[in-house]
Amino acid sequence: MEFIFDLLTPYGITENTFQNMLIAAILGISIYITLYAGLFSLANAGFMATGAYVSVILTTRYEWDFLLAVGAGIIAAGLISAIISVPVLRLSDIYLAIATIGFGEILVVLLRNFDRIYELIVNKEETITGGATGIKGIPVITTTEYLLLYLGIVVFLMVRLHRSRFGRALVAIRQDNKVAANMGINVVYYQNMAFILGAMIAGGAGALHGHLNRIILPENYGFDRAVDILTFAVLGGTTTIIGPIVGGFIIAYLPEILRRTDLVGLLGDIFGTDLGRYQANVRDMTVGMILLGVIVFLPQGIASPAMWRRVANRIWNLFNPAEKSDA
């Protein structure tokens, strides 16, 4: 590992940045699978919170083994998604998106007030989720190797899914769910399974993320995070598994790019003021502008194979002007 970072650090990819990139890629895949099944769900930030809180409470309070706790976080996210899928998946399109945002917000409020609710029920004061200040002093157990391993497992799962009866059913549902039903596919069942699978992937990412930064807060898993996760998939593209990975990598790496190019300083010079305080806002605005550009000019995402094939063709034609190809 060490020598890799010796190579990458000059480009601003420290181990910490790289870990954030990996987490982002995994989260991107977690929403990719639901989009794959034709579901526009923004619940994955909530499932990430579930995985994070469950696993962290298990390792810190009950001294569980780390991997067992991660597994428990994944299962907890799966269970919660199975429960909420019953009412929520009756909706589709933008209504589903709104309902899942609602779920995320409820979960954040619940985490913030969990200890008080616990006190009301059991009549005993105790710090479990730590309210708005979160859980502090979490041991840093997650390593880059764990993240790479988890990403590897998730990618393998997706690649195999793509080539399975299950995956083909999901593609059929996304293209035309009525016809899919007439082909003998149980649409409700397969959409539920995709939703749960996405939740479990996000839950695992949350569990690993929880043991990375010594502290977890309810705010980490709110609306902003839900939108971030969607951004990974949209930026990279949702036609192949490469898309959400590339999207996650780019957005998690973006703050470093901004720091290196000193975009904030540049903008400050243009407007004649010091914008140093607005580092985060500039980042958000830049992401917003890049996203806008991608949606308008590359609706298939940055990692769209069709687009790159066209680009390659054009470059090829540039150097071989004699052979006219009408690609």
């Binding site: 399975s164 009866r165 299950f166 995956g167 059913a169 293209q175 035309d176 596919i185």
Partner: peptide, 27 residues
């Protein structure tokens, strides 16, 4: 039709009911 699938894939996905294979078997 499933327009973005190939002709062959259209015919394979239609055999869903006759299939039994689960995701685990594919994995």
């Amino acid at each position: 039709l499933f327009n973005q699938m190939s002709v062959l894939e259209n015919l394979i996905v239609a055999q869903h009911s006759d299939g039994r294979a689960t995701l685990v078997e594919a994995l």
